[in-house]
Design a binder for these strands. Structure first.
Lengths: 174, 174
DNA sequence: CCGTTTGTTCAAAAAAGTTTGAACAAACGG
DNA sequence: CCGTTTGTTCAAACTTTTTTGAACAAACGG
């Protein structure tokens, strides 16, 4: 991630693939994009190639264009389907399944929130209710008051977070 | 990250530290929290300990409480200062510098956006303007139209993203 | 049935990211 | 000055995550 802690040079984008010009540039943009979201490079690569392809692509096309393994392509596509960022194209006479990207921001954001954000908020809520309990058990009254204030504060944060998400989705809805 | 791709068991939280009960639980919540944001564990640990401490703490207190190295503590504090999530406490007669957490959601969100989100949006914008250029150079008119439509779409996404951020900060402002 | 194409799985290899710790610098008191 | 305390730096060690690739399963056509 060229993360918050490091200063090391970032890995240069591969050339062992058959991407040229515009395709390469688009893929770079999405690789950066998914990194911000904490998703792996291959996800960004795959989505990028699909995004800039005039026609749907099959798994093998991705393997070839990106020079990644079948395994990566398969897993990447699964994750993207889970996020609702990619869908299978129906009803071509073929045996292979072809994929196209979902390109509506609303859908992409929605999928990300549903898959990556909500679950954490949910599990956080559980932990916080245990916290409140633990705070109540502090014997010293002054410390107890402090702890309870802090726990209350975290609780507010998550509550607000939960409220902002649907709003976000609405704002970004075409 | 118990990430999108893996199914492996997550590392259990350390016991080689002097944290007990509530402290441990709070730290866990923040460790999870920062992981969602793509920040390293130690950042969450440090912020957590500060958050639940009734008094400001110095670097060595963190080293002892968390059982982490001085190096980690130093780097973690630096990152947290950068995010505006922690500030130095002024004017105690002491030589050591003590830290306390920033606890206003507005400030925390603001810092994260400023440090982690904006820079990516900025660098994205540059890439996108290069993209637009590349798309214009496609000779085939049909493909060119398609490419331009797609580039235009990404451009819209980042524009909207840029608009949502200040809104977000406003909504979360106490 | 059998060979081929398509796609999945998962253990092991590789890559990326984080933490450590020893060396260093700065600031201070005596 | 000198020893001590406090904190920073960064290469190496370690941990975690991602990717690979070989083995496998499913589906199909002939």
């Amino acid at each position: 991630m060229g993360s918050i802690m490091s200063t090391l040079p970032e890995r240069e984008n591969e050339t062992s693939s058959s991407l040229e010009g515009l395709e390469r540039q688009i893929v770079d943009v999405f690789v950066d994009g998914v990194k911000v979201l904490g998703l792996p490079r291959s996800i960004g690569e795959i989505y990028g190639v699909l995004f800039i392809s005039p026609t749907p692509l099959a798994l093998d096309d991705l393997v070839e264009k990106l020079g990644i393994s079948k395994g990566s392509a398969s897993q990447g596509l699964r994750a993207l389907k889970g996020l609702g960022a990619v869908r299978e194209v129906e009803g071509n006479g073929e045996r292979r399944t072809y994929f196209e990207p979902a390109v509506e921001l609303k859908r992409l954001v929605g999928g990300f929130i549903r898959e990556q954000v909500r679950p954490h908020i949910e599990s956080g809520k559980k932990k916080i209710s245990k916290l409140a309990e633990a705070a109540r058990e502090e014997p010293d009254p002054e410390r107890r008051a402090f702890f309870q204030e802090r726990v209350e504060r975290i609780d507010n944060w998550t509550r607000r977070g939960g409220q902002v998400l649907p709003l976000l989705q609405r704002i970004l809805g075409e």
